[in-house]
Amino acid sequence: MEIGLTHYLIISAILFSLGLYGIITRKHAIMVLMGLELVLNATNINFIAFARYGGMNIEGHIAAIFVIILAAAEAAIALAIVLNIYQNFRHVNVDEVDNLKG
């Protein structure tokens, strides 16, 4: 069977689900971030696959570039916040940071 759009989409679907699994089950903030990176990469596979099979639509590539840029910015901010949490709490487990409850 020739490799087509569906093959790429299946990889994207699996990667997205893996990312979600990581986000749900991980406690370590940085591990959650890694799960998120998987989700964003799955998105990019979608964009580029749709671009390739939708008449080499360059918009998909542009979208993927923006996703990469924003992922970098978001990772930088998230890691800065994680560092700050570490200075305050001495650990970075998301569900142990829970002074706020009600």
Partner: peptide, 13 residues
């Protein structure tokens, strides 16, 4: 800082 961590994690997801 806790608020900020929760905000960034949920927001990013």
């Amino acid at each position: 800082s806790e608020a900020s961590l929760k905000y960034v994690i949920f927001g990013a997801v």
